[in-house]
């Protein structure tokens, strides 16, 4: 006999993500899931963001990596409360899931945080399927990766609330086409695009204004 089941396969993750989201909402925190390739500059972007916004906008960071606590240490040096999830300790996962974020939340003082960045494991594929309870998703791409990334990873770019294109200081030494990147992004997403360089600071203003606007829209009133 055939029995209809009709269940989302990751329903366990979905349920935990809802729990995380409820805890964030109670604390008045807007959470941003940051997804990008290894080396795209996710941590560098957060360092620059912290350098300007924190503590006027009180940031917090959960760092996901397969191994090492380096990224969390970089953010702690910026004065931001940061905790590291090392997925090697839980099977070496290629992505964060809601249960890992829930555990990390317990290590942060939520009342001190207005905007929480959750930096996912460097990967443009797997993090896309796992909701973490976040309000927003940001995809960080970078110039050396090439201008075809939105076309090649449509599932990830299609769900972005905003897209950062990092390392624009390298444009003169690459064949990267900004028009081609923008066009392939527009084919899958209407999300705002922030071309910038976390190294030189060029273009950071638009991104920082966007982050601050999200706090006003989702989180506590400033």
């Amino acid at each position: 006999m055939r029995v209809e089941v009709l269940e989302r396969i990751l329903k366990v993750n979905d349920a935990l993500a809802e729990e995380v989201r409820a805890a964030l909402d109670r604390a008045g925190i807007v959470a941003v899931n940051v997804i990008g390739s290894p080396g795209s500059g996710k941590t560098a972007l957060l360092e620059q963001t912290a350098a300007v916004l924190h503590p006027r906008v009180r940031l917090g960071v959960i760092e996901g990596d397969i191994a090492t606590t380096r990224d969390a240490e970089r953010l702690v040096r910026c004065g931001v409360p940061a905790v590291q999830i090392e997925t090697r300790l839980v099977g070496g996962a290629c992505h964060l899931d809601a249960s890992l974020v829930r555990m990390a939340l317990a290590r942060l003082r939520l009342e001190e945080i207005e905007v929480l960045f959750v930096e996912n494991v460097g990967n443009l594929v797997c993090p896309s399927a796992y909701g973490l309870g976040e309000h927003l998703r940001v995809v960080v791409a970078s110039v050396p990766e090439g201008d075809d990334k939105p076309a090649k990873y449509p599932a990830t770019f299609a769900r972005a609330s905003a897209v950062v294109l990092n390392k624009v200081d390298l444009l003169p030494v690459t064949d990267f086409s900004m028009a081609a990147f923008a066009e392939s992004l527009r084919a899958v997403s209407a999300a705002p695009l922030f071309p910038l360089s976390a190294r030189t600071g060029e273009g950071l203003g638009g991104w920082l204004a966007w982050v601050e606007a999200q706090r006003a829209d989702w989180g506590r009133a400033p």
Partner: peptide, 23 residues
């Protein structure tokens, strides 16, 4: 890349559904 984790969830859910319907 994470298909093993997905398969684990899937099997858990299918086993539970089978139990619920006496299969």
């Amino acid at each position: 890349m994470h298909e093993v984790g997905v398969a684990e969830c899937l099997i858990g859910q299918a086993v539970a559904a089978a139990g619920a319907h006496g299969l």
